[in-house]
């Protein structure tokens, strides 16, 4: 796989690169559209939040009155706003022709925008998805407080799942919304007292070779609890999601994706070692999104701050044998390369 980082994500900024941030402006943000800094009395600059971080209300209230807040914008709010409007326009179109036109327009904007020369980054798309589908703030906050990498993954995995859904022909906003929400729960099983960096690496390793996660943990002397958490986190997450989301969903079947996101089509996955040769596309969407997003923070940040091709190339470089996602892969590949027309079967 490609581990190369295309751009350094963060380096200490100079004062000239930073803009003043008004308290009123801060209060309106739920996610940080850029890096947020605090200038101390001694003249030092401290980074408070990264672009994309969740801004809890108490935190916003706390810093609202501060006169020393600075920020460096990353998220292109105008492009995010355009995307949101374009999507809403499509969904609100009543006339079939208008509907088709609006849909094609939106899909093209998205496809071209996320290409290298399109100027749209995955973090922008994540912001647009957040605005369109409103993720569960409580869960998001819990993710961020417990483990920031899991939060950052959630941000990317959920928006990627929506993107894959769109490319695969799922256009119903209610379905897309639920895909977005459920995707956030893929890692919910890892929000646990026994979670460690090694467990996240095991999840990473498992993507490349079945059984690799377990082996990695054992090779590195992980505790029994860590191994257990790794092997059971799909079930933990699924049970949590059932309890929390189950009754609210129009498509509760989607929750099965949480349980199955580490399964393979040849029975080498876990927790049930199922053979998944008869899965529909929607059942494998989240599995693919989860597989595409890295657990390593530097790679993850690189993917967030680039267009889709960086992420796609990294995924393409990995073996996907055993993952029942080849239909989604084909459709997505087709969508990336061609102007938006009806996606043909592979």
């Amino acid at each position: 796989m490609s581990n190369s980082i295309t751009n350094p994500i963060w380096s200490p900024p100079t004062l000239g690169e930073l803009q003043n941030l008004e308290g009123e402006q801060l209060v309106q943000w739920e996610l940080a559209p850029g890096d947020l800094y605090l200038k101390t009395n001694s003249g030092k600059i401290l980074r408070l939040k990264r672009a994309g971080d969740f801004l809890e209300l108490p935190w916003r209230e706390k810093f609202k009155a501060s006169k020393n807040l600075l920020w460096k914008p990353f998220v292109q709010t105008d492009k995010v706003s355009d995307l949101v409007k374009s999507f809403q326009h499509w969904q609100q179109a009543q006339d079939p022709v208008d509907y088709e036109l609006a849909k094609n327009q939106f899909m093209e904007n998205l496809r071209l925008g996320l290409r290298p020369d399109g100027g749209l980054k995955m973090i922008d798309w994540s912001f647009a998805c957040r605005e369109l589908f409103k993720s569960d703030s409580q869960l998001v906050e819990e993710f961020q407080n417990k483990h920031v990498v899991l939060y950052r993954r959630g941000l990317l995995v959920s928006s990627l799942a929506v993107l894959l859904s769109l490319a695969s022909g799922y256009h119903d906003p209610r379905f897309l919304k639920e895909i977005y929400h459920v995707s956030w729960w893929l890692d919910a099983g890892l929000i646990h007292d026994d979670f460690s960096y090694w467990v996240s690496l095991a999840c990473q390793e498992e993507r490349w070779r079945p059984g690799g996660g377990d082996a990695l943990l054992k090779e590195n002397g992980a505790s029994e609890k860590e191994v257990n958490l790794f092997l059971e986190h799909p079930r933990f997450g699924y049970e949590k999601a059932i309890e929390s989301l189950g009754k609210k969903l129009e498509y509760p079947e989607l929750l099965m994706s949480i349980l199955r996101h580490h399964e393979k089509s040849d029975g080498t996955g876990f927790p049930e070692g199922m053979s998944l040769s008869v899965m529909s596309d929607w059942e494998t969407l989240m599995m693919m999104a989860d597989n595409m997003v890295d657990y390593r923070e530097e790679v993850l940040e690189d993917h967030l701050h680039n267009g889709i091709l960086t992420l796609w190339k990294a995924f393409q470089a990995r073996p996907i044998e055993g993952l029942p996602v080849h239909r989604i892969v084909e459709k997505f590949r087709f969508w990336l390369r061609h102007p938006h027309v009806e996606v043909l079967s592979a």
Binding site: P96, Y99, E100, S168, G169, Y170, H171, D172, R174, F175, Y251, S277, V278, M279, S280, D281, W282, R327, E342, V343, L344, S345, A346
Partner: peptide, 29 residues
């Protein structure tokens, strides 16, 4: 023998397409 995929159920399939239905009131197009 059975599959949920058209091309597996009917291997002689040459061309085709698909759509997803989530709302039966919105399938006209």
């Amino acid at each position: 023998q059975a599959s949920v995929h058209l091309d597996e159920n009917f291997p002689s399939m040459k061309e085709g397409s698909s759509f997803k239905v989530t709302n039966h009131l919105r399938i006209g197009n």
